[in-house]
Design a protein around this nucleic acid. Sequence first.
DNA 1: ATAGTCAAGGTCAAAGATGGTCAAAGGGTG
DNA 2: CACCCTTTGACCATCTTTGACCTTGACTAT
Lengths: 142, 142
Amino acid sequence: MKKSLADKIEQYLKVLIDRSDDKRIEIQRSELAETFSCVPSQVTYVIATRFTERDGYYTESRRGGKGYVRITRFSMPQEGANLSDLFSYCDYLTEMELLTERESKLLTHLLVNAFNQFPAETREEIFEGIKKALSEYVKTES
Amino acid sequence: MKKSLADKIEQYLKVLIDRSDDKRIEIQRSELAETFSCVPSQVTYVIATRFTERDGYYTESRRGGKGYVRITRFSMPQEGANLSDLFSYCDYLTEMELLTERESKLLTHLLVNAFNQFPAETREEIFEGIKKALSEYVKTES
DNA sequence: ATAGTCAAGGTCAAAGATGGTCAAAGGGTG
DNA sequence: CACCCTTTGACCATCTTTGACCTTGACTAT
């Protein structure tokens, strides 16, 4: 897939967050713009479209000298999904009104019942795949 | 019988999919149109008529800068039975009004995207499990 | 304290870049 | 000829990139 500038900046920031100790980074908008040779508002755009609460992030910022933008990931990272993780993710999506009660119930039913024949590690991989696909889905679907 | 442009584009895409690792390709509509010296909507036409769900393909796209069209083949000779089975089962449940359109779409997305890291046999088992759990679900839910 | 200056970040709308839709025109085949 | 599939193009929807203008906060000179 060809990556747009916005995609690249998004990825860059997500790697930074992954590497951070507390899933939180502070950047300077203009500095990042400089790094990617773009206008500062491009950074604002990326944050506005890819680091929303829906996506599991919240942001704070301060203007003026020594300003910053802080991004914190509050939802679970992609790795190591387990059943209860996915449950809370479903709950979360339901609260955000990205899934209906019924949809959440359907998913929950599947999660509990559909994969019992697999060993624990396989199930974990399955859950991980579902989680990723689910987060893609809610992004495009509302 | 003479091969139409649409036929050529179809063949071209199918070769690309065959060669791909995961039976999934991403193209740019306008670029492909350029390659075949035709209007972009020709590509849309080919995809709409020859890469349907019935044919065993699933497509997604994104507009705007660096947009793309992604085509996934889910129906490979050996494993196709199950996934397309599940698809038609979803369709069936939707027609019976046991699932909503949106629920069916959500499931379809998960089916196509969540399990690509697994080998075909595992996927088949997964689909089987899902099908069972799904049929239980709709029983309890009505 | 007060006001001025400058260095951030924010907003918003326009322009650019793709893909989608639909209906009309074109062409081949029975 | 009639029908169906193909080809085109005008217009639409969505996502990205850019830039002009606005707001805020820290620091400094008075």
